[in-house]
Simulated scan of single mutants.
Amino acid sequence: MSMPSRTASVPPRILVIDDHRDFGALVQRVAEKAGYMVRLTDSPDGFRDLCATFQPDLICLDIVMPQEDGIELIRWLAGSGSRAAVYIMTGHSPAFARAAVEIGRSRGLNIAGILQKPVSLATLRDILTAARPGSSLPAAAD
């Protein structure tokens, strides 16, 4: 699966939603070093607003959050016609993450894979580097 194409002069955009701000900030730092323009939120409402205004190429989506289930955000993304590549992130059950992947794909989303927390810095760096335009996304871990 690939991200929507942008011109070479425009950096790819990544949107990260995670209720654990420290982990979200880690993804942000690694993504910025990989050349991404990054937006970070811990709010489902903020996520929806940023999807509309920021138009991300790649989304890192935590599926277990206190305010709203990430599955609801997957449904919202599908309903909004999102073309962004989506990585499902979770520190919980891998089975739940696989179910989220299936739900997203069945609704036509470009689900790129799963980031099982804790994810190593090297793995995160490799995934974000491979996800840049012109690269192939690694196979989903499902």
Rank of each mutant, 00 (worst) to 15 (best):
M3V: 05
M3N: 02
S5R: 01
S5F: 00
S5T: 02
T7E: 12
V10H: 06
P11R: 00
I14H: 01
L15V: 09
L15H: 04
L15S: 02
R21Y: 10
D22K: 09
D22N: 14
F23S: 08
G24L: 11
L26C: 05
L26K: 07
V27H: 05
R29F: 05
A31C: 10
A31F: 09
E32S: 13
Y36A: 06
M37W: 09
V38H: 06
T41F: 04
D42Q: 09
D42K: 04
D45S: 13
F47K: 10
D49H: 12
D49L: 12
A52G: 08
T53Y: 06
F54G: 11
D57T: 01
L58V: 03
I59F: 02
I59A: 00
D62F: 06
V64Y: 13
P66S: 12
P66M: 10
E68Y: 02
E68A: 09
E72D: 14
E72R: 15
E72C: 11
I74C: 10
W76E: 12
L77A: 10
S82P: 09
I88S: 07
I88R: 08
T90Y: 10
G91A: 11
H92C: 10
H92S: 15
S93T: 09
P94Y: 01
A95C: 02
F96M: 15
A99P: 05
V101G: 02
I103S: 03
R105P: 08
S106L: 01
R107G: 14
R107Q: 15
R107H: 15
G108P: 08
N110W: 04
L115R: 14
Q116C: 10
L121M: 13
L124N: 10
R125G: 12
R125C: 10
I127D: 01
I127T: 13
P133K: 00
S135C: 09
S136V: 02
L137N: 05
L137V: 03
L137W: 00
